[in-house]
Design a protein around this nucleic acid. Sequence first.
DNA 1: GTTGCTTACGATTTGCGTAACGATA
DNA 2: TATCGTTACGCAAATCGTAAGCAAC
Lengths: 326, 326
Amino acid sequence: MTLVQLRCFAAIVDAGFNITQAAAQVHATQPALSKQLKQLEDALGYRLFLRHGRSLVDLTPAGRQVLEHTRRLLGEARNIRALAANQRAEAEGELRIVTTHTQARFVLPPALAALRRAWPRTSIHLEPAADAEVLARLDRGEADVALISSSGSEPAGGVAIPLYRWRRVVVVPRDHALAHAGRAPTLATLAEVPLVSYESSSRADSSLAAAFADAGLAAHLAMTARDADVIKTCVREGIGVGLLAEMAVGALADPDLAVLEAPTSIPGCITWAVLPRERVLRDYTVDLLRHLAPQLDRHDLRRVVAGHAEPRWPAPPDWRDLSPVL
Amino acid sequence: MTLVQLRCFAAIVDAGFNITQAAAQVHATQPALSKQLKQLEDALGYRLFLRHGRSLVDLTPAGRQVLEHTRRLLGEARNIRALAANQRAEAEGELRIVTTHTQARFVLPPALAALRRAWPRTSIHLEPAADAEVLARLDRGEADVALISSSGSEPAGGVAIPLYRWRRVVVVPRDHALAHAGRAPTLATLAEVPLVSYESSSRADSSLAAAFADAGLAAHLAMTARDADVIKTCVREGIGVGLLAEMAVGALADPDLAVLEAPTSIPGCITWAVLPRERVLRDYTVDLLRHLAPQLDRHDLRRVVAGHAEPRWPAPPDWRDLSPVL
DNA sequence: GTTGCTTACGATTTGCGTAACGATA
DNA sequence: TATCGTTACGCAAATCGTAAGCAAC
């Protein structure tokens, strides 16, 4: 049993039981993988895959067990490599971030720009995904960090680190009646107009729906979208009153929109970073988190993610105070 | 970076930074290990060991970090091998048990005999150790199972599984006054005689000391020993009144001794099996635990040790009911 | 001088890729 | 017939053990 064999095994599973495709991923030829798999199965003494003829179609039950431990093992191998890269202050590296549109579009760019100034040779992959997809992608190992917002409890699926708080804002065209009301709209007011908001708000268990329900009201979601820009465009078109994250609007970017405070009964949100447990972080990953949330301590961060300490995070500041530039 | 390199690294550390000695452990020559270490250090890009001249004297701080992850990685490699061995119903294997004298001498032998009937080709290593040493040895990876008793909370350092309950008994020579008192001695009576008991009872925080203290009394420990046989011999010699585990005396083995119930204020004990977390158990290990505690469910056992379920153990039965043979 | 790590060297093994083959749908 | 996995073969690289070299106590 060798590391290479185990890596091939995992690659074949990840490629959907297609050795040819897995070989491409690993930058090797197909016969090489085929042989490695054979050797691994010989070493263990039984088949890891169910086969139809020669094609692999699924894992055997035993193979499934082996896979679980193989993933952990490969994770530790990756950790050791990360330790080494940090130790050598290696400039190259990859950082895969999966997050929602608002973070990717409005919050991350300045942080990533700063990160790339400090780490010009890293390659950063930013993958926007639907709310529900974000944590699933992290869990599948397709990302190193997930950034996700919630108004409720901390997200599961890894080590959750609170970065900053933010509130929703009401957005209307400058000439809209609400813009001239002189005061922030009430929940009752919002219940009477068509709303345009995030896709996730349409779920029955969303914090928005709960806020209306608590007041004996119901929101009328005229339209939902993942993309804050789409929402703003719809607001401009008069489709409805926008309700979105304060990060998504700026006086400079949206001179034609009026931004009003949301009713206080609509709860604030916290944006969390979620990291896989027991994963050694590259230095630039820690740097990114510190850019997003300067209140975090590098050592605490590392200790908690390593599982050496219980999480006890500083209270996340308001996003508004964090980013006076925007 | 290869599995072999990491194994060598760990072996060198375990051998006390002596490559020659580590080579013997791994069944390889010293130059081979030396080269593997060099390759690992080259692959990582920095030194894992501090050196005085050519000799290794300690780990570097970075080496210490790498070691931690290496141990986890090698643990998973071992788990995969264990899965394979179970899957193939492999008859060979090793089972290292570390426990206290009483368990090793009075409880384990029949269980081990049964185990060897089922698994004649396994090699079982039974290592008696001082109370305090047992868990330390398990933690250092020198054993696969620790068996340890406590009257208080469950032992830490791994997955603790309650096997059975037992009580202490008072042991005196047949012609001793207490043997003819007609009833079990009280705590007050025991406070007035010299006691002979386990070494661990002499600790100020022992459950025995606490029981006496709660009654406003103090025990007079005339002698302590780890070894129940030694204690019984001392009792025969008239050194004092014995206080030991009920498992350690039997009518057949000790016809010259009278065994009396201990006062109820002396709390009962539970014997626990402690297993390293997230370790795949060989089938014979599960069998051993089932011999010691038939109330356990094989699947629960595996699930909890694997970390897939929270421990929720059946109440441990009394040892007396478990082993009607003795 | 003894202990212990490193280097050198030759024999063996392992592993890769190319290419041909076989099976499946 | 196209796709995908296995087998065959030749070459390159890695690894082991023996033996010799070197540093420290």
